[in-house]
């Protein structure tokens, strides 16, 4: 910036246009720059603190037993959270099976088939509202609809509650990705006499795939970390799941339950379960970034 000012100062009788480092404006500049650097660095501290704690506290207890055994009760030593890992994966799987097809189909309607219709406008707006919804309300909703009706807490109910949370995220991300598909590609396909379905299947979906996948993976990562909606839909269980229609353990609920316990063993397990959960979530995040990046390299 200073070069620009200097080079445009040919006349001498004007006030000095050179940067004066004792000027109050310059002081303000330096002060605020330091402030904003400080803010950026301070904001990064929590992430590093969380991750280092997870590695130190969680890494200390991570072994084959912790990953495979069932949770210990009370004063018992040892134990693990194998059933919770399975439970989380199963419920996220159920949620994905429900929300991904629905979300992508809804996104097709919003992005391609009828973007400006009333249904699309309202649905897009409500999807945005739904992303800001407290996740616990999804749990309460599913408790009312499924748990009360079937009379039991179940992996199904947990999966559906997660699906309610994933649906708007998947829809909005997929819509955004589909909008990036150049109009002329669609025009070319329509010009060849394709039906709208053919355009979608052969042009829009293949071209938008990296973007759609990024959105989907991020939604899956978010669902894996959720706990509030599982609290009274899947509840918890101390055993490996035998069927889908019974209370099911999950990593996040295990962390919640164990964090408040007065036993060191449980607290250690809560840390290692957190480590597993965060590694899972971060892996998904990195995967999403890699998939999303390949879009620009092509």
């Amino acid at each position: 910036m200073s070069e620009i000012i200097q080079s445009s100062a040919p006349v001498i009788q004007y006030p000095s246009l050179e940067k004066n480092s004792l000027d109050i404006r310059e002081f303000k500049n330096i002060f605020l720059t330091i402030m904003v650097w400080g803010i950026a660095i301070m904001a990064s501290i929590p992430l590093f603190s969380v991750i280092s704690m997870l590695i130190i506290e969680g890494g200390a207890r991570i072994d084959f037993a912790a990953l495979t055994e069932i949770p210990p009760a009370g004063f018992e030593m040892g134990g693990g959270f194998g059933n919770a890992i399975i439970g989380t994966l199963v419920m996220v799987g159920i949620a994905s099976l429900i929300s991904i097809p629905f979300g992508i189909m809804a996104a097709l309607h919003l992005a391609i088939l009828d973007p400006n219709s009333k249904v699309a406008t309202v649905s897009r707006f409500l999807a945005k509202v739904l992303t800001g919804f407290p996740s616990i309300l999804a749990g309460i909703f599913v408790y009312g609809v499924i748990v009360i009706t079937t009379g039991t807490y179940s992996a199904w109910a947990g999966g559906v509650a997660l699906a309610v949370l994933m649906l708007p995220t998947v829809t909005l991300a997929a819509e955004e990705a589909m909008k990036q598909v150049p109009q002329r590609m669609k025009d070319a396909a329509f010009g060849m006499g394709c039906t709208r379905t053919q355009v979608i299947m052969k042009v829009v979906l293949p071209t938008g795939l990296p973007g759609i996948l990024t959105g989907v993976i991020l939604a899956v990562a978010g669902a894996a970390g959720e706990s509030a909606p599982l609290l009274f839909t899947a509840l918890f269980s101390n055993y490996y799941m035998a069927e889908l229609a019974e209370p099911t353990a999950s990593l996040s609920i295990l962390i919640y339950n164990f964090s408040g316990m007065p036993f060191d063993n449980q607290i250690e397990l809560a840390w290692s379960a957190s480590l597993v959960l965060v590694v899972l979530v971060l892996l998904f995040n990195i995967l999403a970034r890699l998939v999303g990046r390949s879009k620009f390299k092509e």
Partner: peptide
Amino acid sequence: VFRTTIELLAAIPSVVYGLWGIYV
């Protein structure tokens, strides 16, 4: 780097923040 750090802050599950809050 900074952008990724901030984005990853959002990826950490709520319960993990709770646990971190209690013990750190």
